[in-house]
Design a protein around this nucleic acid. Structure first.
Lengths: 218, 218
DNA sequence: ACCTGAACACCGTTCAAGT
DNA sequence: ACCTGAACACCGTTCAAGT
């Protein structure tokens, strides 16, 4: 067998950010980890409330640290947002993986779509728009797409999902309901469910008509 | 049902911005109208290229006017964007009104959705997000929703559209394909067609399942 | 090693001075 | 009436000085 990659095939790739092994780099200082955690918490709250418009000064103030500290932990304001999104995405994916095993095959996919859409996840938008160098995000995206692929296949076998769509298709479509419903000025905050239902109907095999445009990787 | 369609069926609402009638306000100076036109043209090009990130300085430079002139014509950078979007939306709506009369009843709606989505219209996002006081936008939005109501009704009578969706539903959903496809890093620029097709399948009567959440005005 | 706030650069917006 | 660029305020980011 290939023993070169033995390190990779270990039980569960724990992904602790950087590979901080025993003899590797020195551990970060205590106040550093505390400040980082505070920043993430403050940023999540502020971003949720005011969107991308909050000043980093406000976030720093809420976290009780100096402005400069923000940039010691995160290269840029966008990267801070990305970190927040990433952490939320992590728990979402974990929930999805649980669903994939516990929920009945023909509903797990749609249950997950509903769960994901419910958190107004423009997450994916951040994931792909901060674009470029950030490998953390690439990883999370890949992991999400993997999960979706699994859920999609499962649903297709159960006859609940049309055969001509991919996991990536479904993953991308998750963003639509929240985005679309956000345009209705002062509407029922549950309006997104309406559009998710319509999209799901479009994903079911019953009314499916052949798709002209191919997915990403044919 | 909204029966105020009568006002819409007039001979082309020309919409010249403000109602500049004969005895009304004095006509604007010649250089003012020229500069306004230049600004709109420059802004359209720059926004299309760099998105909301362009500096107003760049736009002013391209239009060959001073920075201050921008704010004499448009209260804010966002309002300038809104004006650009509004003008594009005007021609889109005109095209749609033509479609409503010439195209066969069962395809006019979907043809229009395709047309609208093809111009990566995040237009609506601007329409509703600049929010508040801007009455020009309210007007355009109302006009668009009116058109969609007409197209939707037509399609429903022809049996091409499920009965439980409104014109507003369809109008909002138009934004989804472009938005969603934008998340796929370097994909086929025609990918939006794929998601439009799926959404349209969800809008057809064949596979429709009852919607739990009601539309805006019941 | 990490924290901090003063300093810098940039950009949206305002305004006094011009025509 | 409208144009203009200098000036202002604000904010993301950097950095020298502290511990």
């Amino acid at each position: 067998m290939l023993s070169r990659e033995a390190t990779l095939s270990g039980p569960r790739g724990q992904h602790v950010g950087r590979v901080a092994c025993v003899t590797d780099a020195k551990a970060p200082r205590a106040d550093a980890v505390r400040n980082r955690a505070r920043l993430l918490e403050a940023a999540e709250a502020e971003f949720a409330q005011h969107g991308m418009d909050v000043s980093v000064a406000d976030i720093a103030a809420r976290a009780r640290v100096g402005k400069g500290t923000v940039f010691r932990h995160f290269a840029t304001k966008e990267e801070l947002l990305a970190a927040v999104v990433l952490s939320r995405l992590d728990v979402l994916i974990a929930d999805g993986e649980r669903l994939a095993e516990t929920s009945p095959a023909e509903s797990a996919l749609f249950d997950f779509m509903s769960l994901a859409a419910s958190q107004q996840q423009d997450e994916l938008s951040v994931l792909t728009n901060v674009d470029g160098v950030n490998d953390l995000l690439e990883g999370a995206q890949a992991r999400l797409f993997g999960l979706m692929e699994r859920l999609a296949l499962q649903a297709q076998i159960a006859g609940a999902l049309r055969d001509d769509v991919t996991g990536e298709d479904v993953a991308l479509l998750i963003c639509a309901p929240g985005h679309v419903a956000g345009f209705a000025p002062r509407a029922d905050p549950e309006l997104w469910r309406r559009y998710l239902a319509i999209i799901v109907d479009g994903l079911r095999p019953e009314g499916a008509r052949p798709l002209a445009t191919p997915p990403r990787n044919t």
